[in-house]
Measured scan of single mutants.
Amino acid sequence: MGSVRTNRYSIVSSEEDGMKLATMAVANGFGNGKSKVHTRQQCRSRFVKKDGHCNVQFINVGEKGQRYLADIFTTCVDIRWRWMLVIFCLAFVLSWLFFGCVFWLIALLHGDLDTDYKDDDDKSKVSKACVSEVNSFTAAFLFSIETQTTIGYGFRCVTDECPIAVFMVVFQSIVGCIIDAFIIGAVMAKMAKPKKRNETLVFSHNAVIAMRDGKLCLMWRVGNLRKSHLVEAHVRAQLLKSRITSEGEYIPLDQIDINVGFDSGIDRIFLVSPITIVHEIDEDSPLYDLSKQDIDNADFEIVVILEGMVEATAMTTQCRSSYLANEILWGHRYEPVLFEEKHYYKVDYSRFHKTYEVPNTPLCSARDLAEKKYILSNANSFCYENEVALTSKEEEEDSENGVPESTSTDSPPGIDLHNQASVPLEPRPLRRESEIGSRR
Protein backbone atom coordinates (compact mmCIF):
# COMPACT_ATOMS: atom_id res chain seq x y z
CA MET A 1 0.00 0.00 0.00
CA GLY A 2 2.81 2.37 0.81
CA SER A 3 4.44 1.97 -2.59
CA VAL A 4 1.15 2.49 -4.39
CA ARG A 5 0.44 5.62 -2.41
CA THR A 6 3.86 7.02 -3.14
CA ASN A 7 3.42 6.40 -6.87
CA ARG A 8 0.00 7.99 -6.85
CA TYR A 9 1.13 11.06 -4.98
CA SER A 10 4.29 11.65 -6.98
CA ILE A 11 4.04 15.29 -8.00
CA VAL A 12 7.24 16.00 -9.88
CA SER A 13 7.45 13.94 -13.04
CA SER A 14 10.92 12.63 -13.66
CA GLU A 15 12.80 12.77 -16.94
CA GLU A 16 12.42 8.99 -17.21
CA ASP A 17 8.63 9.36 -17.08
CA GLY A 18 8.79 11.98 -19.83
CA MET A 19 10.92 9.72 -22.03
CA LYS A 20 8.61 6.80 -21.29
CA LEU A 21 5.61 8.84 -22.35
CA ALA A 22 7.29 9.98 -25.55
CA THR A 23 8.26 6.38 -26.36
CA MET A 24 4.70 5.24 -25.76
CA ALA A 25 3.34 7.92 -28.08
CA VAL A 26 5.63 6.87 -30.93
CA ALA A 27 5.00 3.17 -30.39
CA ASN A 28 1.24 3.65 -30.46
CA GLY A 29 1.32 5.72 -33.63
CA PHE A 30 0.62 9.08 -32.00
CA GLY A 31 4.06 10.59 -32.50
CA ASN A 32 2.91 13.04 -35.18
CA GLY A 33 4.46 16.10 -33.61
CA LYS A 34 1.16 17.38 -32.22
CA SER A 35 1.30 15.57 -28.90
CA LYS A 36 2.71 17.58 -26.05
CA VAL A 37 4.77 16.10 -23.26
CA HIS A 38 4.92 18.30 -20.18
CA THR A 39 8.31 18.42 -18.54
CA ARG A 40 9.69 20.57 -15.78
CA GLN A 41 10.77 23.23 -18.25
CA GLN A 42 7.31 23.40 -19.88
CA CYS A 43 4.51 24.09 -17.41
CA ARG A 44 0.98 23.22 -18.40
CA SER A 45 -1.70 25.83 -18.79
CA ARG A 46 -3.76 26.80 -15.78
CA PHE A 47 -6.85 24.59 -15.56
CA VAL A 48 -8.82 26.98 -13.33
CA LYS A 49 -8.11 30.67 -13.71
CA LYS A 50 -7.68 32.98 -10.75
CA ASP A 51 -11.17 34.40 -11.32
CA GLY A 52 -12.67 30.91 -11.08
CA HIS A 53 -13.40 30.31 -14.76
CA CYS A 54 -12.32 26.93 -16.10
CA ASN A 55 -9.83 27.16 -18.94
CA VAL A 56 -11.59 24.51 -21.03
CA GLN A 57 -12.95 24.56 -24.57
CA PHE A 58 -15.28 21.88 -25.95
CA ILE A 59 -14.79 20.80 -29.54
CA ASN A 60 -16.40 18.22 -31.83
CA VAL A 61 -19.55 17.98 -29.70
CA GLY A 62 -22.12 15.96 -31.61
CA GLU A 63 -25.64 17.43 -31.94
CA LYS A 64 -24.67 20.41 -29.83
CA GLY A 65 -27.49 22.61 -31.12
CA GLN A 66 -30.16 19.99 -30.50
CA ARG A 67 -28.90 19.32 -26.99
CA TYR A 68 -28.91 23.01 -26.13
CA LEU A 69 -32.39 23.52 -27.58
CA ALA A 70 -33.68 20.53 -25.63
CA ASP A 71 -32.71 22.43 -22.47
CA ILE A 72 -33.75 25.84 -23.76
CA PHE A 73 -34.45 27.32 -20.33
CA THR A 74 -30.94 26.60 -19.01
CA THR A 75 -29.54 27.87 -22.30
CA CYS A 76 -31.39 31.16 -21.91
CA VAL A 77 -30.24 31.50 -18.31
CA ASP A 78 -26.59 30.82 -19.16
CA ILE A 79 -26.25 33.04 -22.24
CA ARG A 80 -25.09 36.64 -22.06
CA TRP A 81 -27.51 39.47 -21.41
CA ARG A 82 -27.14 40.87 -24.93
CA TRP A 83 -28.37 37.60 -26.43
CA MET A 84 -31.07 37.37 -23.80
CA LEU A 85 -32.34 40.79 -24.90
CA VAL A 86 -32.28 39.68 -28.55
CA ILE A 87 -34.31 36.55 -27.73
CA PHE A 88 -36.69 38.66 -25.64
CA CYS A 89 -37.39 41.04 -28.52
CA LEU A 90 -37.51 38.36 -31.22
CA ALA A 91 -39.98 36.24 -29.25
CA PHE A 92 -42.54 39.04 -29.17
CA VAL A 93 -41.92 40.45 -32.64
CA LEU A 94 -42.10 37.04 -34.32
CA SER A 95 -45.29 36.13 -32.46
CA TRP A 96 -46.88 39.44 -33.50
CA LEU A 97 -45.83 38.88 -37.10
CA PHE A 98 -47.07 35.29 -37.13
CA PHE A 99 -50.53 36.09 -35.83
CA GLY A 100 -50.66 39.24 -37.96
CA CYS A 101 -50.13 37.05 -41.01
CA VAL A 102 -52.84 34.67 -39.78
CA PHE A 103 -55.40 37.46 -39.37
CA TRP A 104 -54.40 38.92 -42.73
CA LEU A 105 -54.95 35.53 -44.40
CA ILE A 106 -58.34 35.19 -42.69
CA ALA A 107 -59.34 38.62 -43.96
CA LEU A 108 -58.00 37.82 -47.41
CA LEU A 109 -59.87 34.52 -47.71
CA HIS A 110 -63.06 36.07 -46.36
CA GLY A 111 -62.86 38.98 -48.79
CA ASP A 112 -62.51 41.67 -46.16
CA LEU A 113 -59.59 43.32 -47.96
CA ASP A 114 -61.84 44.28 -50.90
CA THR A 115 -64.15 46.38 -48.71
CA ASP A 116 -63.38 50.03 -48.06
CA TYR A 117 -64.96 51.00 -44.78
CA LYS A 118 -63.86 54.61 -44.94
CA ASP A 119 -66.48 55.56 -47.55
CA ASP A 120 -69.08 52.97 -46.66
CA ASP A 121 -71.39 53.53 -43.67
CA ASP A 122 -73.30 50.32 -44.10
CA LYS A 123 -72.91 48.60 -40.76
CA SER A 124 -74.21 45.37 -42.22
CA LYS A 125 -70.95 45.09 -44.19
CA VAL A 126 -68.98 45.69 -41.05
CA SER A 127 -70.77 42.90 -39.26
CA LYS A 128 -69.89 40.52 -42.08
CA ALA A 129 -66.14 41.11 -41.67
CA CYS A 130 -64.17 38.60 -39.60
CA VAL A 131 -62.17 41.40 -37.97
CA SER A 132 -63.50 44.89 -38.31
CA GLU A 133 -61.20 47.64 -39.59
CA VAL A 134 -58.67 45.08 -40.83
CA ASN A 135 -58.30 45.67 -44.57
CA SER A 136 -54.50 45.48 -44.93
CA PHE A 137 -51.49 43.65 -43.57
CA THR A 138 -50.51 46.66 -41.45
CA ALA A 139 -53.96 46.71 -39.86
CA ALA A 140 -53.75 42.96 -39.23
CA PHE A 141 -50.30 43.38 -37.62
CA LEU A 142 -51.59 46.17 -35.36
CA PHE A 143 -54.59 44.04 -34.39
CA SER A 144 -52.19 41.21 -33.48
CA ILE A 145 -50.21 43.55 -31.20
CA GLU A 146 -53.39 44.87 -29.57
CA THR A 147 -54.64 41.33 -28.94
CA GLN A 148 -51.45 39.94 -27.40
CA THR A 149 -50.63 43.00 -25.31
CA THR A 150 -54.31 43.63 -24.40
CA ILE A 151 -54.02 47.27 -25.42
CA GLY A 152 -57.49 47.43 -26.99
CA TYR A 153 -57.73 50.81 -28.71
CA GLY A 154 -61.30 49.99 -29.79
CA PHE A 155 -61.15 50.49 -33.57
CA ARG A 156 -60.36 46.88 -34.45
CA CYS A 157 -62.22 43.94 -32.99
CA VAL A 158 -63.08 40.38 -33.92
CA THR A 159 -66.67 39.51 -34.83
CA ASP A 160 -68.69 36.32 -34.64
CA GLU A 161 -68.72 36.05 -38.42
CA CYS A 162 -65.67 33.73 -38.52
CA PRO A 163 -65.17 31.12 -35.79
CA ILE A 164 -61.57 30.67 -36.92
CA ALA A 165 -60.86 34.33 -36.13
CA VAL A 166 -62.35 33.93 -32.66
CA PHE A 167 -60.24 30.81 -32.09
CA MET A 168 -57.05 32.60 -33.19
CA VAL A 169 -57.72 35.47 -30.78
CA VAL A 170 -58.05 33.00 -27.90
CA PHE A 171 -55.01 31.03 -29.06
CA GLN A 172 -52.85 34.16 -29.36
CA SER A 173 -53.83 35.25 -25.85
CA ILE A 174 -52.69 31.88 -24.46
CA VAL A 175 -49.44 31.95 -26.46
CA GLY A 176 -48.76 35.49 -25.25
CA CYS A 177 -49.16 34.41 -21.62
CA ILE A 178 -46.78 31.50 -22.17
CA ILE A 179 -44.15 33.75 -23.76
CA ASP A 180 -44.49 36.27 -20.93
CA ALA A 181 -44.11 33.57 -18.29
CA PHE A 182 -41.08 32.01 -20.00
CA ILE A 183 -39.26 35.28 -20.63
CA ILE A 184 -39.98 36.72 -17.19
CA GLY A 185 -38.97 33.45 -15.53
CA ALA A 186 -35.71 33.27 -17.47
CA VAL A 187 -34.87 36.90 -16.73
CA MET A 188 -35.63 36.51 -13.03
CA ALA A 189 -33.63 33.28 -12.83
CA LYS A 190 -30.72 34.98 -14.56
CA MET A 191 -30.89 37.97 -12.23
CA ALA A 192 -31.12 35.75 -9.15
CA LYS A 193 -28.12 33.60 -10.10
CA PRO A 194 -25.61 33.61 -7.25
CA LYS A 195 -22.77 33.88 -9.76
CA LYS A 196 -22.21 37.57 -9.06
CA ARG A 197 -21.94 36.80 -5.34
CA ASN A 198 -18.49 35.43 -6.15
CA GLU A 199 -17.31 38.96 -6.89
CA THR A 200 -17.36 39.65 -3.15
CA LEU A 201 -15.64 36.39 -2.17
CA VAL A 202 -11.87 36.56 -2.46
CA PHE A 203 -8.92 34.22 -2.21
CA SER A 204 -5.38 35.29 -1.42
CA HIS A 205 -3.08 35.71 -4.40
CA ASN A 206 -0.58 33.21 -3.00
CA ALA A 207 -0.71 30.12 -0.84
CA VAL A 208 1.93 29.61 1.84
CA ILE A 209 3.67 26.71 3.54
CA ALA A 210 4.82 27.22 7.11
CA MET A 211 4.94 25.54 10.49
CA ARG A 212 1.77 25.46 12.57
CA ASP A 213 1.49 23.48 15.79
CA GLY A 214 4.75 21.72 15.03
CA LYS A 215 3.75 20.50 11.57
CA LEU A 216 4.23 21.78 8.05
CA CYS A 217 0.95 23.13 6.71
CA LEU A 218 -0.28 24.44 3.40
CA MET A 219 -2.41 27.53 3.97
CA TRP A 220 -4.44 29.99 1.95
CA ARG A 221 -6.79 32.76 2.94
CA VAL A 222 -10.43 33.40 2.06
CA GLY A 223 -12.51 36.48 2.75
CA ASN A 224 -16.05 37.80 2.42
CA LEU A 225 -16.35 41.45 1.40
CA ARG A 226 -20.05 41.66 2.27
CA LYS A 227 -21.62 41.86 5.69
CA SER A 228 -24.25 39.33 4.64
CA HIS A 229 -23.19 35.83 5.62
CA LEU A 230 -22.52 32.79 3.49
CA VAL A 231 -24.69 30.10 5.06
CA GLU A 232 -23.22 26.59 5.47
CA ALA A 233 -19.91 27.72 4.00
CA HIS A 234 -17.36 24.98 3.50
CA VAL A 235 -14.12 24.59 1.58
CA ARG A 236 -12.61 21.89 -0.60
CA ALA A 237 -9.31 21.54 -2.42
CA GLN A 238 -7.89 19.28 -5.10
CA LEU A 239 -4.46 18.81 -6.55
CA LEU A 240 -4.29 18.43 -10.33
CA LYS A 241 -1.30 16.84 -11.97
CA SER A 242 -0.42 14.45 -14.73
CA ARG A 243 0.75 10.95 -13.95
CA ILE A 244 1.44 7.61 -15.57
CA THR A 245 -0.19 4.51 -14.10
CA SER A 246 1.64 1.28 -13.46
CA GLU A 247 0.06 -0.05 -16.67
CA GLY A 248 1.54 2.80 -18.70
CA GLU A 249 -1.66 4.82 -19.07
CA TYR A 250 -1.10 8.59 -19.17
CA ILE A 251 -3.60 10.65 -17.18
CA PRO A 252 -3.22 14.34 -18.09
CA LEU A 253 -5.15 15.68 -15.10
CA ASP A 254 -5.33 13.38 -12.12
CA GLN A 255 -7.50 14.85 -9.36
CA ILE A 256 -6.36 14.20 -5.80
CA ASP A 257 -8.37 15.42 -2.83
CA ILE A 258 -6.57 17.58 -0.30
CA ASN A 259 -7.85 17.15 3.23
CA VAL A 260 -8.86 20.44 4.84
CA GLY A 261 -10.66 18.90 7.79
CA PHE A 262 -13.60 17.09 6.24
CA ASP A 263 -13.44 14.21 8.72
CA SER A 264 -13.30 16.48 11.75
CA GLY A 265 -15.77 19.03 10.37
CA ILE A 266 -13.43 22.02 10.41
CA ASP A 267 -13.88 22.42 6.66
CA ARG A 268 -17.11 24.26 7.55
CA ILE A 269 -16.26 27.85 8.32
CA PHE A 270 -17.97 30.91 9.76
CA LEU A 271 -16.88 33.44 7.17
CA VAL A 272 -17.44 36.75 8.93
CA SER A 273 -13.81 37.85 8.81
CA PRO A 274 -10.98 36.49 6.63
CA ILE A 275 -9.99 32.97 7.61
CA THR A 276 -6.83 31.02 6.88
CA ILE A 277 -7.60 27.53 5.58
CA VAL A 278 -5.08 24.97 6.79
CA HIS A 279 -4.09 21.68 5.18
CA GLU A 280 -1.84 19.65 7.42
CA ILE A 281 0.86 17.96 5.35
CA ASP A 282 0.75 14.48 6.86
CA GLU A 283 1.37 11.01 5.46
CA ASP A 284 -1.95 11.11 3.57
CA SER A 285 -1.13 14.41 1.88
CA PRO A 286 0.06 14.51 -1.74
CA LEU A 287 2.67 17.05 -0.60
CA TYR A 288 4.16 14.77 2.04
CA ASP A 289 7.36 13.96 0.14
CA LEU A 290 7.99 17.42 -1.29
CA SER A 291 10.63 19.79 -0.01
CA LYS A 292 11.01 23.45 -0.88
CA GLN A 293 13.23 22.60 -3.83
CA ASP A 294 10.71 20.05 -5.07
CA ILE A 295 7.92 22.63 -4.87
CA ASP A 296 10.01 25.12 -6.85
CA ASN A 297 10.54 22.58 -9.64
CA ALA A 298 7.10 20.97 -9.52
CA ASP A 299 4.37 21.23 -12.13
CA PHE A 300 0.97 20.92 -10.52
CA GLU A 301 -2.06 23.01 -9.69
CA ILE A 302 -4.09 23.24 -6.50
CA VAL A 303 -7.74 24.12 -7.07
CA VAL A 304 -9.51 25.61 -4.05
CA ILE A 305 -13.30 25.78 -3.82
CA LEU A 306 -15.55 27.70 -1.45
CA GLU A 307 -19.24 26.74 -1.40
CA GLY A 308 -22.17 28.08 0.52
CA MET A 309 -25.71 29.42 0.32
CA VAL A 310 -26.40 33.08 -0.34
CA GLU A 311 -28.23 34.47 2.65
CA ALA A 312 -30.63 36.60 0.58
CA THR A 313 -31.77 33.92 -1.88
CA ALA A 314 -30.78 30.60 -0.23
CA MET A 315 -29.18 29.59 -3.54
CA THR A 316 -25.89 27.72 -3.54
CA THR A 317 -22.87 29.54 -4.89
CA GLN A 318 -19.40 28.25 -5.61
CA CYS A 319 -16.27 30.37 -5.72
CA ARG A 320 -13.10 28.90 -7.22
CA SER A 321 -9.46 29.78 -7.59
CA SER A 322 -6.19 27.95 -8.06
CA TYR A 323 -2.53 28.07 -7.14
CA LEU A 324 0.31 26.89 -9.32
CA ALA A 325 3.47 25.54 -7.75
CA ASN A 326 5.27 28.85 -8.28
CA GLU A 327 2.46 30.65 -6.43
CA ILE A 328 3.12 28.74 -3.20
CA LEU A 329 5.45 30.68 -0.89
CA TRP A 330 7.51 28.41 1.32
CA GLY A 331 8.31 29.79 4.76
CA HIS A 332 5.78 32.63 4.68
CA ARG A 333 2.80 33.60 6.78
CA TYR A 334 -0.07 35.99 6.18
CA GLU A 335 -0.10 39.36 7.82
CA PRO A 336 -2.83 39.87 10.42
CA VAL A 337 -5.98 41.53 9.11
CA LEU A 338 -8.24 41.37 12.18
CA PHE A 339 -7.70 44.04 14.80
CA GLU A 340 -9.49 44.34 18.11
CA GLU A 341 -10.75 47.82 18.86
CA LYS A 342 -12.54 49.05 21.95
CA HIS A 343 -16.07 47.96 21.08
CA TYR A 344 -15.68 46.08 17.82
CA TYR A 345 -13.31 44.22 15.51
CA LYS A 346 -11.79 45.87 12.47
CA VAL A 347 -10.73 44.06 9.28
CA ASP A 348 -8.03 45.69 7.17
CA TYR A 349 -8.28 44.24 3.66
CA SER A 350 -5.19 46.14 2.51
CA ARG A 351 -3.20 43.39 4.29
CA PHE A 352 -5.27 40.52 2.92
CA HIS A 353 -2.78 39.39 0.26
CA LYS A 354 0.40 40.40 2.09
CA THR A 355 2.77 37.85 3.61
CA TYR A 356 5.95 38.00 5.64
CA GLU A 357 8.84 35.55 5.70
CA VAL A 358 9.31 33.36 8.75
CA PRO A 359 12.98 32.53 9.39
CA ASN A 360 14.13 29.00 10.21
CA THR A 361 11.20 27.35 8.47
CA PRO A 362 12.32 23.80 7.60
CA LEU A 363 13.21 23.40 3.94
CA CYS A 364 12.85 19.63 4.00
CA SER A 365 9.76 17.61 3.26
CA ALA A 366 7.16 16.75 5.85
CA ARG A 367 8.31 13.12 5.72
CA ASP A 368 11.88 14.07 6.63
CA LEU A 369 10.54 16.30 9.36
CA ALA A 370 8.42 13.48 10.79
CA GLU A 371 11.35 11.06 10.65
CA LYS A 372 13.52 13.51 12.62
CA LYS A 373 15.90 14.01 9.71
CA TYR A 374 15.65 17.74 10.28
CA ILE A 375 16.16 19.30 13.70
CA LEU A 376 13.76 22.10 14.44
CA SER A 377 14.93 25.27 16.09
CA ASN A 378 13.96 26.11 19.61
CA ALA A 379 10.29 26.97 19.98
CA ASN A 380 11.19 30.28 21.60
CA SER A 381 13.44 31.03 18.65
CA PHE A 382 10.64 30.47 16.21
CA CYS A 383 8.21 32.63 18.19
CA TYR A 384 10.82 35.33 18.66
CA GLU A 385 11.72 35.52 14.99
CA ASN A 386 8.07 35.46 14.10
CA GLU A 387 7.59 38.51 16.32
CA VAL A 388 10.66 40.19 14.86
CA ALA A 389 9.28 39.77 11.36
CA LEU A 390 6.01 41.44 12.34
CA THR A 391 7.80 44.18 14.27
CA SER A 392 10.05 44.99 11.32
CA LYS A 393 6.97 45.26 9.13
CA GLU A 394 5.46 47.77 11.52
CA GLU A 395 8.70 49.73 11.68
CA GLU A 396 8.81 49.96 7.90
CA GLU A 397 5.25 51.24 7.83
CA ASP A 398 6.00 53.73 10.61
CA SER A 399 9.04 55.02 8.73
CA GLU A 400 6.94 55.46 5.61
CA ASN A 401 4.39 57.42 7.64
CA GLY A 402 7.10 59.73 8.99
CA VAL A 403 7.40 58.31 12.51
CA PRO A 404 10.88 58.98 14.01
CA GLU A 405 13.14 55.97 14.16
CA SER A 406 13.83 56.57 17.84
CA THR A 407 10.31 55.39 18.65
CA SER A 408 10.83 52.00 17.04
CA THR A 409 11.65 48.88 19.03
CA ASP A 410 15.08 48.19 17.58
CA SER A 411 17.38 45.80 19.34
CA PRO A 412 20.52 47.16 20.98
CA PRO A 413 23.49 47.40 18.61
CA GLY A 414 25.87 44.52 18.47
CA ILE A 415 23.32 41.88 19.47
CA ASP A 416 22.51 39.14 16.99
CA LEU A 417 18.81 38.39 17.03
CA HIS A 418 19.28 34.81 15.86
CA ASN A 419 21.87 34.09 18.53
CA GLN A 420 19.62 35.67 21.11
CA ALA A 421 16.82 33.31 20.16
CA SER A 422 18.14 30.47 22.33
CA VAL A 423 17.67 32.57 25.48
CA PRO A 424 14.26 32.10 27.13
CA LEU A 425 12.09 35.05 26.32
CA GLU A 426 9.13 36.59 28.01
CA PRO A 427 5.92 36.37 25.98
CA ARG A 428 5.41 39.47 23.86
CA PRO A 429 1.76 39.73 22.82
CA LEU A 430 0.94 41.88 19.84
CA ARG A 431 0.06 45.38 20.86
CA ARG A 432 -3.36 45.57 19.26
CA GLU A 433 -3.74 42.82 16.75
CA SER A 434 -4.60 39.18 16.67
CA GLU A 435 -5.13 36.90 13.76
CA ILE A 436 -8.04 34.53 13.79
CA GLY A 437 -7.28 31.48 11.67
CA SER A 438 -8.67 28.03 11.44
CA ARG A 439 -7.26 25.89 14.26
CA ARG A 440 -6.81 22.27 13.99
Rank of each mutant, 00 (worst) to 15 (best):
G2D: 07
L216W: 01
I11N: 13
G261K: 11
R226Y: 06
K125G: 15
I145E: 00
I174M: 04
F382M: 14
H229L: 12
G214D: 04
L306P: 02
N7R: 14
D51H: 11
H205V: 07
V26M: 09
E396L: 06
D78Y: 05
A139L: 02
R243L: 05
M188A: 15
F137G: 04
G33E: 07
V56C: 13
H205K: 15
V93F: 06
V423Y: 08
V126A: 05
D257N: 10
I277T: 02
N206Y: 12
V235S: 05
E385N: 04
F352M: 09
V231T: 10
S45R: 13
S246C: 06
A314I: 05
L306V: 11
A421P: 09
F30Q: 15
K50R: 11
A370K: 14
V37Q: 09
T391F: 11
L69C: 14
E396S: 11
N198T: 07
E199A: 14
Q318H: 07
A370N: 07
S321F: 14
D263P: 06
P362K: 02
A312P: 10
C89S: 05
G185K: 02
Q293E: 13
A370S: 04
V208W: 01
D410P: 10
E301H: 00
A70N: 08
A186G: 15
A314C: 14
A210V: 09
A210W: 03
S377H: 08
I178S: 10
N7Y: 04
T361S: 11
I145R: 01
V403F: 06
K342L: 04
I258W: 00
E341V: 06
V56Q: 09
Q57G: 14
T115P: 03
S285P: 00
W104F: 05
L94T: 05
A379N: 08
R8W: 03
H332N: 03
R428L: 09
V231N: 04
S35L: 07
E301W: 02
G33I: 07
A70S: 12
T316D: 11
D284L: 12
N360C: 08
Y334I: 02
I59C: 15
Y334S: 00
V310T: 14
D51P: 04
G100D: 01
W83G: 05
R221Q: 14
D121R: 06
I375F: 03
M188C: 13
I251H: 12
L230M: 06
R351N: 15
H343S: 10
I79N: 09
Q238S: 10
E340V: 07
I178Q: 03
S124L: 15
F262C: 09
N135T: 11
T138K: 02
L97A: 03
D112W: 00
C162H: 01
Q172K: 02
G331L: 01
F88P: 04
L113H: 08
F352H: 00
T355Y: 02
A210T: 11
A233N: 05
Q255T: 10
F88H: 08
A210N: 11
D114W: 06
E327H: 00
L21W: 08
N206W: 04
H53Y: 06
N28R: 08
Y349M: 06
M211G: 04
T115S: 10
L390Q: 15
R44Q: 08
V260E: 00
G154R: 07
T75S: 11
F98M: 14
R226K: 13
C54E: 15
N55R: 08
E280H: 10
T147M: 03
V403D: 12
E426G: 04
S173Y: 12
S10G: 11
V310K: 05
R212Y: 05
I305R: 10
S264N: 08
S136I: 02
P404E: 10
T200W: 08
A366R: 01
E435F: 09
L363A: 13
T355I: 02
S399L: 11
A139S: 15
G29F: 02
P412A: 14
F143N: 01
T23D: 15
C364I: 03
H279M: 01
E15G: 11
L271K: 04
A140C: 04
V260Q: 00
F382C: 14
N378I: 03
V310C: 12
F171L: 07
W330T: 00
A325W: 03
K372A: 13
A129F: 12
E247T: 07
C383W: 05
L376P: 13
D284H: 15
D120V: 00
N32S: 13
T245E: 09
S264R: 13
N401Q: 11
P362M: 02
V56R: 06
K125V: 15
L218D: 01
R5L: 04
N206H: 13
A207T: 03
E307C: 11
I269A: 09
P252I: 15
E395M: 07
K195S: 07
R197L: 11
F30A: 15
M191Y: 05
D263L: 05
T149P: 02
Q66I: 13
T138D: 02
V170N: 01
Y68A: 08
S3E: 15
E395P: 11
F155T: 11
K196L: 11
Y384T: 14
L324M: 07
N60T: 07
L105N: 05
R320E: 12
G265A: 12
E232C: 13
D416T: 09
K354F: 08
E396Q: 11
E16C: 08
A140N: 02
S322P: 00
L329N: 04
I328H: 02
D213I: 01
V126R: 02
L430R: 13
A91T: 03
T200Q: 06
R333F: 15
V423R: 09
D263M: 09
A91F: 11
L363R: 04
A25I: 04
V131G: 02
G248A: 08
M219L: 09
A107D: 01
L329V: 12
F141H: 01
S422Q: 13
S321D: 01
C177M: 10
G152Y: 03
